[in-house]
């Protein structure tokens, strides 16, 4: 056994250096049983308390969910019916718009719309343009068309 081992051996042989408060071990069983009983009791009452607190909140939440569900159902139904009408309108509007845009020139306009609506023949139109418009106006219209 060398000198360093002696240090550890001497420390061990010096005995127990720790102390406890007087009577600490005497009532340990009773203290433990009291703690176990105390920890077991609130657990049951805590469960009851939690349910008592949660019950009205859960009822309220369920009612809100029901009302929301019903409202959502009614709204979705209404929206679905309305959306059909709107879509038809939009389609009609788009068609009309396309019709308005389609004529690319004055001649086209006359040919597609005006001519169809008034049922004028080509000769009448030419005569009208020749008499009512000046040469420069006709040239300008022609230039804009191409």
């Amino acid at each position: 056994m060398n000198e360093q081992q002696d240090i550890l051996e001497r420390a061990r042989q010096a005995g127990q250096p720790f102390k406890t408060p007087e009577g600490y071990f005497d009532g340990l069983e009773d203290r433990l049983m009291a703690r176990i009983a105390a920890e077991a009791q609130p657990e049951t009452s805590r469960k009851v308390r939690i349910w008592a607190v949660l019950k009205p909140a859960l009822t309220l939440a369920a009612m809100f969910a029901l009302i929301f569900g019903m409202g959502y159902g009614v709204l979705s139904l209404t929206r679905t019916l309305g959306r059909g009408e709107v879509s038809t309108d939009v389609a009609g509007y788009a068609t009309a718009e396309e019709e308005m845009i389609r004529p690319a020139s004055l001649i086209d306009y006359y040919q597609s719309n005006l001519a169809e609506e008034t049922e004028l023949d080509e000769e009448t139109i030419v005569n009208y343009l020749a008499t009512e418009l000046s040469f420069s106006d006709l040239a300008e219209i022609y230039a804009q068309s191409y």
Binding site: I7, F18, P21
Partner: peptide
């Protein structure tokens, strides 16, 4: 308060 060891035990 609950320790009455000597210097060697404190070192240990």
């Amino acid at each position: 308060t609950w320790f009455d060891g000597d210097q060697l035990q404190r070192s240990l």
